[in-house]
Amino acid sequence: MSISRFAALALLALPLAACQPNVPQESMTDPQDATEADIARWYIGTIPDDPFDIPQVDTNLLPEEMVRQTVKYNGSEQAGTIVVDIDSRHLYLVQNNGTAVRYGIGVGKQGFSWKGAARVGRKGVWPNWSPTSTMVRIKPDLPRHVKGGLDNPLGARALYLYNGNVDTLFRIHGTNEPWSIGQAVSSGCIRMLNQDVLDLYQRVEVGAPVIVKRTGKRVVANAE
């Protein structure tokens, strides 16, 4: 299924999704496997935004640990730091009271994950997307440029990670594949539900420190 067709189906699904019963999440990591009914039941409405409204995902279809929530946090990072735990599939925004806002994320598949320290170099609203040279080499048929919108793989918002003044080419961004949250399927970037990346975008400033942790083993997140 093309990205454009996916977006069209998602929009068609919005007025129908409120009538869908809550059912357990099914394994669906490839949008080509998604039927119109599969897509429809993920969406329950929209969040007003400019220039596009954000399709709102039914978080009842996500595992509980992937739903945005405030948790106790025992790390040493200062408030305002973004901590990405690749192994647990979580992103933490550290607060100043021993807690963090925890978001479920999708991460890079094996061989694409990155770790290290960075900062939010800039922020984008409904950003444009272009594949890296590595992506093009692996998939030559990828479009070379996609304008911001519902069919864009970066979703509604993006945080661009920089090392000093150098763009690392890694991003924290939205996704139009909500079933991929909690899985390792991306080309290395950190993907979030559009409604979650909107929340994160509103909370952090350019310059915020980012720490990406990865051991290569699936472990319990460092929250209590």
Rank of each mutant, 00 (worst) to 15 (best):
N165R: 07
P131F: 06
Q25W: 03
A17Q: 11
G148V: 05
A223K: 01
E177M: 13
P15M: 06
G149H: 12
V185S: 08
I138M: 11
Q32H: 15
A184S: 10
S27F: 04
A17C: 05
E177N: 14
P15Y: 13
T99E: 14
P153Y: 09
P127E: 07
Q202S: 09
D49L: 03
A223M: 00
P63I: 06
A79Y: 06
W129T: 06
D50T: 15
V94R: 01
T134F: 03
R102K: 11
P143D: 14
A184H: 05
T175G: 13
S4V: 04
Q56H: 10
V23D: 04
T29F: 12
A10P: 01
Y160K: 10
A118H: 15
D167E: 08
R5V: 06
A40D: 04
L169A: 13
P140K: 15
V206N: 01
V101R: 07
G207T: 01
R203I: 00
N128H: 11
I190R: 11
W42M: 01
A7Q: 06
V125G: 12
A7D: 04
I190M: 11
N128S: 14
G121W: 15
G104I: 03
T175Q: 14
L12P: 00
I54E: 07
I44P: 09
P63G: 10
L62P: 05
I44R: 15
T35Y: 06
G188Q: 12
R191F: 11
A40F: 01
P143N: 14
F6K: 09
E205C: 00
P140H: 15
I82T: 05
I172H: 14
V146R: 10
S88C: 02
E26P: 00
V146Y: 07
I181Q: 08
N152P: 04
R218Q: 00
G116F: 08
L159P: 07
E177A: 13
N163M: 09
E65N: 11
G108Y: 07
V120F: 10
L159E: 12
A40Y: 01
R68F: 12
F112G: 10
L91P: 02
A223Y: 08
A17K: 13
D58P: 07
